[in-house]
Amino acid sequence: MQSQTTLKGFIIKFSSPEHINTDAQGKFHFTNVNYFRHLEKNEKLGIKDPNEVFQVYKLDPITDRLTIRLPGSRTMVIDNPRGTLTQTFSLTNNVSICSFVHLDIEKDFERTEKNEFVIRPSVIGELDHEFKNRPGIIWGCGDFNDITTNAVIPKDEVHGVYSGLVKYYSNSNTNISKLKNITAQQLLSMSLQKENYFQNQREFRLVALCNYPDCDFNISQTVTNTEKPIRFKDATQLYRFFASDI
C-alpha cells in the first residue's frame, strides 16, 4: 500500500452496527465509487457525493465561452455561461474506496489544565452532525498505519491500494482545458478530492485501483502487536476521549 501522507493524531472509522466488529478487527471493506454516486442520486443523503471521482469545473461567466456543435457542422457560441461541467471516465468504474476520519492533533484537539489533549467540542459537534448515531472505532495514527501497511490485499482483484487525506476544493478541481484528458496518477488524485461542502468529514481515504469494474472487496489485518482500538456508541461519546504524552 502506497501512502500519500504521514499522519499525526487519530483515525476514526464510523461504521454500521453490523460491521463494527469486523472493522475493530482490522478487516476493512472497500466499496466501488458507483455505490456512493447512486446513493446520493436516489436517496439524497447529504453525506454522499454524487460527483465522487469526477472532474468538476464551474464555468466563469466573465472569462469562459461555450461552443456547442450542432448537426450539419454548425456551432453555437454561448457567452457568459453559467453552470458546472463534470467529466468522468470508464476507468473510474475500477475505483473502490474505504473511508475514515482523521483528527489532527494540532487542529482538532485542545490541551486541558491537566495537560491532556481532548477533542474540541466544535469538532465533536460537526462529527455528530455528519455521522448521526453511527458507532465508531478510534486508533492512534501509528497503530493504524501498521495495520493498513501490512494488510492482506486480494491481488487477483486489486492492482494497488493508495492512501491519503482528502483535499477539499471550491467550485472546480480541474482546468477546463484538461476535461478531456486524464492519466492514472490524475485518477488517483481525483479519488482524494471532494467539494468543500464535505470538509467537516475530515476524510482520510484508502483508494484501490481494481482489475475490473464494480469491485467490492475486503483487506485484513496481519499485525497483532498494536494497541486495541477504542470503540464508542456514537460521536457524542468522544467527549470522554482524551490523550496524553503526544
Rank of each mutant, 00 (worst) to 15 (best):
F89A: 11
V161F: 08
S96E: 03
V123P: 04
H159Q: 14
T88I: 11
E157K: 15
G125R: 08
I124C: 07
N93L: 01
C141I: 12
S122E: 14
D104S: 15
D146L: 13
I137S: 00
V118I: 13
F109H: 11
C141R: 05
S163A: 13
T148D: 00
D146C: 05
I119R: 13
E130F: 03
A151M: 14
V158F: 09
F109R: 01
I147K: 08
L165N: 11
E113M: 00
E113S: 08
R120S: 07
T86P: 00
S122V: 05
E116R: 09
T149V: 01
I78P: 02
D104E: 06
V95P: 05
E106P: 06
C141N: 12
F109M: 09
G142K: 15
F109W: 01
N133P: 00
V158T: 11
D146E: 13
T92R: 05
N94L: 09
C98S: 15
P154Q: 13
T112Q: 04
R82W: 04
F100M: 08
G136S: 13
E130V: 12
W139H: 07
F144M: 04
K167T: 15
P121R: 10
L127W: 07
L91E: 14
D146P: 01
H102D: 08
G164S: 11
T86N: 01
N145C: 00
D156Q: 12
W139G: 08
G164F: 08
E126C: 13
I105W: 03
N171T: 02
G140P: 02
V161K: 10
G140C: 14
V161Q: 02
T84E: 02
N171Y: 00
I147D: 09
G142T: 13
R120Q: 14
L127C: 09
V152L: 05
L91H: 09
D104H: 09
T149Q: 12
N94A: 06
P154F: 12
N145Y: 11
H159T: 07
V77C: 02
I105V: 14
E126H: 14
K167E: 12
E126F: 09
F131K: 12
N94G: 00
F131Q: 12
I124Y: 02
E130Y: 09
I124M: 01
V161R: 10
K155V: 07
I124T: 06
K155R: 13
R134N: 08
P121I: 03
V161C: 07
D79I: 02
F144C: 04
T86K: 12
H102P: 05
K114P: 05
Q87N: 05
G125Q: 06
I78K: 08
F144Q: 02
S170R: 07
D156Y: 08
H129P: 00
C98E: 06
T86Q: 01
N171H: 03
N145E: 15
V77Y: 00
D104K: 04
L127F: 10
R134Q: 12
E110Y: 10
L91D: 03
R134A: 03
D146K: 15
L91V: 12
F117V: 01
V77H: 03
S163G: 13
K114A: 15
E116M: 06
N150H: 15
L91T: 07
D104N: 15
E130A: 14
V161S: 09
T84C: 00
K155C: 05
E130R: 13
K167R: 15
W139M: 03
F89E: 09
I153Y: 11
N94P: 01
